[in-house]
Design a binder for these strands. Structure first.
Lengths: 357, 357
DNA sequence: TTGTATGCGTTATCAT
DNA sequence: ATGATAACGCATACAA
């Protein structure tokens, strides 16, 4: 057995990292000046600024986040809190948040919360005193979690929450309506909807958009072809099966997220229904998954990455109010999974219309 | 304008959180004893332990991670370092790491690194002094990153790295060979491979497994049907197009990850080639994507979640050496995207075999 | 504009 | 087994 290499794999002790004191000594000033420099205080002369900068560069000084956090009583962590659903949305938000934190001292920590979870959240806030918290849907709709943040004095952004800081919901409804209207304008009349969880306000908005479109074409009185899922692939597949067993069968299915739409594609394939030949399918959120299915999924693009980006900017204090240009614009993205209603389907419809019911 | 609500949305000042001093006063002991209790020191009598426990519960005391980190010179963060490729693998590792950190004071931070990135990593380590770092493939193969960690005195686990702490590679090669052998045993003779990035050792191992299987059936001298991608869906699609334009066309394609395999499915669909009727397709890693394609993708399951879990356990010091039971076992998972070679393909092969070349 | 003393909440060193 | 005191590295009064 090798005698030495056991303990943590380190043999030479680390060179102690330079501190503000070292920088101050080199620069010939006091600690406080260094502190001011680090915190971008306006009360630092240009000459002094240059001297400090040089000293910092010379020593390779990096401020210690732990010490800063202890003094400031706030760490440099931003927590992304989610419940494990909606992988695609989470990834997009992550990306945007990380883009906003690039080069800053902020770090992104992931906090998954199972049902309940207020205790876990409180413990996390108490322990780590994060600079801010971003609540992902559907967690963003839970007032108790927001209350926990407030009680801990932690700023909290509820993504995709109407009453909160995000403007996503309103445009989501509109965009969904636009998508469904496109289908209507292209000959579809029986359009199924795979809804999200019952208690999800975001899903409700999307369903409302669907109904808006039908209503705007005078179709709101017809039987609504709605089945609900839990945003998972499997639930989307099951819901689609229900819808596709109806008679007359829908010629289009719109799902409240991409994963369920992918499930609908699988269901259609399993039943030998061609997409988009005999059935158009569309998802929502425009996650990476939408471009990896066969055929690629039409969807509604929601700028989750920008929402994540802006959330961090707001938490960092760069923008306290959501600037107008920041308002999220959701918009339909047409892909090969949707098409004008085909001749076959048209004939099918006509035949079924002839059947008295 | 409302006069009061402006400042951070908080009106009542926070109740100052209890500290060790408070606990010590309540329990009638010194700070140090509280500290010992928190750190599970053996030098605490049972009676004292109970008293401290009661005081902590009474006050709802939660240790301040920043202060602890400052004193210990190490934060409670574990960084997951990745390069943005291989979403599925990252998510699985994340899941496992989070499971291992559940209930602990550890937190998972995400650190994306673009090409190069040694400076970013160094800055992160200097700033946040994480308890440990987990390098995801293909970053885990970069010695320079590991060197940066070592220089900073930060423990680092290189996931899926042969020379490192993971035993995944060896079994990956074997599992790939098993998968390809299954195809061979089911009549396939022309089996294409979509390889990973040239410089990826993990991809190389998988390719070797592919070659092992061919060799074990005496087919190693035949023309290898190998195209390479960069682990992305698009690259998989392009590589598959190349392979499927060959004549005679392969009856099976194995990709070095699921995303490229999904790309192969798309390519096949685009060329009107039925899967699995005329072409079998398999992926690698068994990510969630594998169950969301049509048809679902056969793949090689790699226990990335467990690898992530074990990585955290080792970083936390719970297990210094990889215990035998921890050795990752990769194994093929057959799904509907693979099938014994069909009659049509068999006939096709025979016809092509008759063509002199 | 710059410097001094003190506090942030915990751990480590030494003593008892 | 337990306690007093000095770090840990930085920020915030407040003074100069």
């Amino acid at each position: 057995m090798a005698p030495d290499h056991r303990h943590h794999g380190r043999m030479t002790p680390l060179t102690p990292r330079p501190t503000m004191d070292d920088v101050a000594r080199i620069a010939g000033v006091s600690k406080k000046t260094i502190s001011r420099f680090i915190n971008n205080s306006p009360d630092v002369s240009a000459a002094m600024r240059a001297r400090v900068e040089a000293a910092i560069a010379q020593l390779g000084f990096v401020p210690n986040a732990q010490a800063r956090a202890l003094a400031l009583r706030r760490s440099f962590l931003v927590a992304l809190v989610h419940d494990g659903s909606d992988r695609g949305v989470r990834e997009a938000v992550e990306t945007g948040m990380l883009r906003a934190m690039e080069g800053s001292e902020l770090a992104l920590v992931l906090l998954p919360l199972r049902r309940g979870g207020t205790a876990e959240l409180r413990a996390f806030l108490d322990r780590h005193a994060p600079a801010g918290v971003v609540l992902l849907p559907p967690l963003s709709e839970r007032g108790d979690l927001a209350a926990v943040c407030d009680a801990a004095g932690t700023r909290c952004i509820r993504l995709g929450h109407d009453g909160g800081d995000s403007a996503a919901d309103g445009t989501a409804r509109t965009a969904m309506a636009d998508l469904v209207r496109w289908l209507l304008d292209n000959g579809h009349r029986r359009i199924g909807l795979i809804g999200g969880p019952e208690d999800s306000r975001a899903a409700r908005q999307r369903e409302l958009g669907y109904q808006d479109a039908l209503a705007s074409r005078g179709l709101n009185r017809g039987p609504w072809l709605v089945a609900s899922g839990d945003n998972s692939f499997t639930s989307g597949m099951e819901a689609a099966c229900l819808l596709l067993e109806l008679s007359p069968r829908p010629t289009a299915i719109v799902a409240c997220n991409d994963e369920m739409a992918a499930g609908a594609l699988a269901a259609a394939a399993g039943m030998g229904i061609a997409v988009p030949g005999a059935l158009s399918v569309a998802g929502f959120d425009d996650t990476p998954l939408a471009t990896m299915t066969v055929p690629p999924l039409a969807s509604v693009h929601v700028p989750w990455d920008r929402l994540g980006h802006d959330a961090v900017m707001r938490l960092a204090g760069a923008a306290s109010a959501p600037s107008p240009e920041t308002v999220a614009q959701a918009r339909p993205v047409l892909r090969a999974s949707v098409a004008p209603i085909g001749e076959a389907a048209r004939a099918d419809l006509a035949a079924q219309a002839a059947i008295p019911r």
